[in-house]
């Protein structure tokens, strides 16, 4: 554990908490993509199957449980409790166009061809692109509430901080994982446009509105 890794995990945790707070306080999931949240739930479940096979640390186990539980809690709030506020018409991204290619890629490029390893790899590829329905929704509506922007910033920062963690680990421990690094770089790049808008608009107190 190094400072970048810890900061990344905390940023990830903060993102999830911000999202739950937004939905709970406003009693609404307007502006949030249920498609992205479904993809994140698939990511956590397929990645954390090793919860039942391997014990790494209490921290590791607890964080995995928090990520899985909170992602299902988010889905419950969106699709059951506050279903009426869900932005169904704008959330029209076809997730099979992400799920299928990621699965095929995981079958082709993985560390070893075993069920757990392929599912882990699938989750890494899928996580890289899971935010696309959310970014698509923001681009369709042309704006995002400030708390939604904070959520996206924290969620994007998490993988960017992991990139620093991987650079650090490469030099400090000789540890590297090309699959995670490659996917993490793609994931971070997808947020760049949003990061720019966040820094130039939201941090200056303006609403995140896309140029017409």
């Amino acid at each position: 554990m190094n400072i970048f890794r810890l900061a990344g995990d905390l940023s990830h945790l903060l993102a999830i908490i911000l999202l739950l707070i937004k939905i709970w306080k406003t009693r609404s999931c307007a502006g949030i993509s249920g498609k992205s949240q479904i993809l994140f739930a698939v990511v956590y479940v397929s990645r954390y199957l090793d919860l039942v096979t391997t014990f790494i640390s209490l921290y590791n186990t607890l964080m995995k449980l928090v990520f899985i539980t909170s992602s299902f809690a988010t889905l419950y709030l969106m699709y059951v409790k506050f279903k009426a506020t869900y932005d169904h018409n704008h959330d029209s991204f076809r997730i099979e166009f992400l799920l299928l290619p990621c699965f095929v890629l995981a079958l082709l490029i993985n560390a070893s061809f075993t069920p757990l390893e392929v599912l882990w790899t699938f989750s890494i590829y899928l996580e890289a692109v899971a935010i696309l329905p959310q970014l698509f929704l923001v681009s369709k509506t042309g704006e995002a509430e400030s708390i939604t922007s904070h959520y996206l910033f924290a969620l994007g920062s998490y993988r960017a901080l992991y990139l620093l963690n991987w650079i650090y680990r490469y030099y400090a421990e000789g540890h590297y994982d090309l699959i995670a690094i490659f996917a993490g770089a793609i994931q971070t790049i997808l947020y760049c446009d949003f990061f720019y808008l966040y820094i130039t608009k939201v941090l200056k107190g303006k609403k995140l509105q896309l140029p017409a």
């Binding site: 490029i109 993985n110 560390a111 090309l178």
Partner: peptide, 10 residues
């Protein structure tokens, strides 16, 4: 391409 499971990262 990678070191394989188990992974210590999240």
């Amino acid at each position: 391409y990678g070191s394989g499971l188990p992974k210590d990262e999240l």
